[in-house]
Amino acid sequence: MGHKIKLIIITLLLALSMSGCTAAVLIPPLSGPLFVPSTASSAYQIYKVSTDERDLQTIIEDEYIESRIHASILDDSELELLELSPYSYNGHIYVVGKYDDKKDFGRISRIVRNSGKVNSLTTYLYPEKENPACNEAEDMILETRVKAALMENRNTRSINIAVKAVQCNVVLLGRVQSPRDIDAVTRVAVHVEGAKSVKSFIRPTNRHRYRLKQRKVAFSK
Results as ranks from 00 to 15, higher is better:
Arg180Thr: 14
Ser178Leu: 08
Asn160Lys: 08
Glu193Met: 06
Gly116Thr: 04
Ala165Tyr: 05
Lys129Cys: 02
Leu142Gly: 00
Asp183Gln: 14
Val166Ser: 04
Lys164Met: 08
Glu128Val: 09
Glu128Ser: 09
Leu125Ala: 02
Ala133Tyr: 13
His191Arg: 15
Ser197Ile: 02
Glu152Ile: 06
Ser158Ile: 13
Gln214Pro: 07
Glu152Pro: 04
Asn131Lys: 14
Arg113Val: 05
Ile141Ala: 09
Ala162Val: 10
Lys213Gln: 12
Asp181Pro: 04
Ala189Asp: 05
Arg187Thr: 09
Val166Trp: 01
Gln167Arg: 05
Met151Glu: 15
Thr123Ser: 08
Leu125Gln: 00
Arg113Pro: 05
Cys134Tyr: 04
Arg175Phe: 15
Met151Leu: 15
His191Thr: 12
Ile159Met: 10
Leu121Ala: 01
Ala189Val: 09
Val166Arg: 03
Tyr126Leu: 11
Ala149Ile: 10
Ala189His: 06
Arg211Asn: 13
Ala195Arg: 00
Phe219Tyr: 02
Met151Gly: 13
Leu121Val: 00
Asn153Ser: 12
Thr156Ile: 03
Pro132Asn: 00
Ala162Thr: 07
Thr122Ala: 11
Tyr126His: 09
Val192Cys: 06
Val146Arg: 01
Arg154His: 14
Cys168Lys: 03
Lys213Pro: 05
Ala133Asn: 14
Asn206Pro: 05
Ser109Gly: 11
Gly194Lys: 02
Ser200Asn: 03
Val146Lys: 01
Arg187Tyr: 12
Thr122His: 07
Phe219Gln: 01
Tyr124Cys: 09
Thr186Gly: 10
Leu173Lys: 03
Val198Arg: 00
Lys129Tyr: 06
Ile161Glu: 11
Thr205Lys: 13
Asn169Gly: 03
Val192Asp: 02
Lys164Asn: 08
Thr156Asp: 12
Met140Trp: 14
Lys164Glu: 11
Val170Leu: 01
Ile108Ala: 00
